[in-house]
Amino acid sequence: MVAKRLDWFNIVNYTLLAIFCLITIYPIYFVLIGSFNEGNDYMRGGIYLFPREFSLSNYSVVLQDERLFTGMKISVLRTVIGTVTSILFTAMVSYAMSRKNLIGRGPYYWLHLFTLFFNGGLIPYFLVLKNIYLINSFWVYIIPSLFSVFNMIIFNSFFREIPEELHESATVDGAGEFRIFWSMFIPLSVPVLATVALWNAVYHWNSFFDAMIFTTNKDLMPLQLFLMKMIREADVISNSQYIPPQVKKSISVQTIRMAAIMISTVPILCVYPFLQRYFVTGFMVGSLKG
């Protein structure tokens, strides 16, 4: 009887998981096949499993815009630089907060926690960035995101689980705090580092609001802001006089938008599977052990 119950449980469980996967994956697949379909043919409807008339015209229209490559460069730079600097800075603060002999540790902690729930609003934030000359600067993407209170809590929970004897032995051997942090705590924190790095990378890659509010320079436009404008301007682009007539006949507003969405989605879809195991392990260790 127990075996039958387990079998029925597995059947129901796998069925529900399969339905959930289908619901999750099919919208992405639907956009993918639409982006590879001829535009006018797509407007007829009825495309659910495969492109009816295969075409690369939608991607050629999106890729011929020079703003795409500028946005790709800015997004890659801000993702790499922003992720590395944020991980380093937040981990250093978290290490300090995990030390019991830190003077003022309690007030510092509650001050950080206060900023997690309350902020001054967009206008004061804009004025602060203006006064420190970050408006229309690449560093407006990097410096405001150097430190995250939530990520500090995750790091702090993990650091406190590292045996104190390791720190004491390193101190006896003459190692300073920075040497202990860099040579001992960082190598032991790879799962948490990978988890927080993934969060930061996704944030920087998908971010467009800060560029839309704090920059007016087209050379600082990240990929996501370009694609958002591409989606909004799809009807204008499809009727542009600079597009060859043979290409214009094989595109539509909807298929151009789908091609733009796929270009912005594919990089994250390619990176996430390689970091998924660190994501699960790091989140569980960094949060539940505290």
Rank of each mutant, 00 (worst) to 15 (best):
T85P: 01
L111S: 12
I143F: 10
N136W: 05
V62E: 04
N58H: 12
Y125R: 06
P124L: 09
I132A: 12
I123T: 08
Y125V: 11
S94K: 00
S60F: 13
M92T: 07
G82M: 01
L127M: 11
S75C: 04
V84G: 11
T79D: 11
L68T: 00
K100P: 08
F138V: 09
L111P: 14
S60E: 12
T70N: 08
V140W: 09
L134I: 01
P51A: 10
G120M: 12
A91I: 01
E53A: 06
E53F: 03
Y108K: 05
F89Y: 03
M72R: 01
L111R: 06
S137P: 10
I103C: 03
T90V: 07
F126S: 06
H112G: 09
F69P: 10
L127S: 05
S55K: 00
G106K: 15
Y141V: 03
S137Y: 07
L111Q: 13
T83H: 01
I74A: 02
M92Y: 04
I103K: 14
F117H: 10
T85A: 13
T70S: 14
K100Q: 10
N58C: 12
F114I: 15
D65L: 12
T70L: 10
Y109L: 12
F54M: 03
L56E: 11
S94M: 05
F126E: 03
N119V: 12
S57L: 07
Y125H: 15
Y108W: 07
T115E: 13
Y141I: 05
D65R: 10
F50V: 07
P51R: 07
M97G: 01
G82L: 00
L102Q: 04
Y133N: 05
R78C: 09
F89V: 15
Y141Q: 09
E53P: 02
F117G: 06
L129V: 13
S86N: 05
N136Y: 01
F118M: 06
T79S: 09
V62H: 00
Q64Y: 02
R78N: 01
S94I: 08
S55W: 00
G121H: 03
I87E: 08
S94E: 07
V76Q: 05
F89E: 04
F69H: 11
M92G: 01
V140F: 03
P107W: 03
F114W: 09
S57W: 06
N101T: 15
K73F: 10
S137A: 06
N119I: 13
I87A: 12
F138S: 04
A96G: 06
M92C: 01
P124Q: 07
F54E: 06
D65N: 15
G120H: 08
L56P: 10
S60Y: 05
I74S: 00
M92N: 00
M72C: 05
R52H: 08
G104D: 15
I123M: 08
I74Y: 02
G121M: 11
I132R: 11
P51Q: 06
G106M: 15
I123N: 10
F114T: 14
G120W: 04
L111V: 13
G121Q: 07
W110A: 02
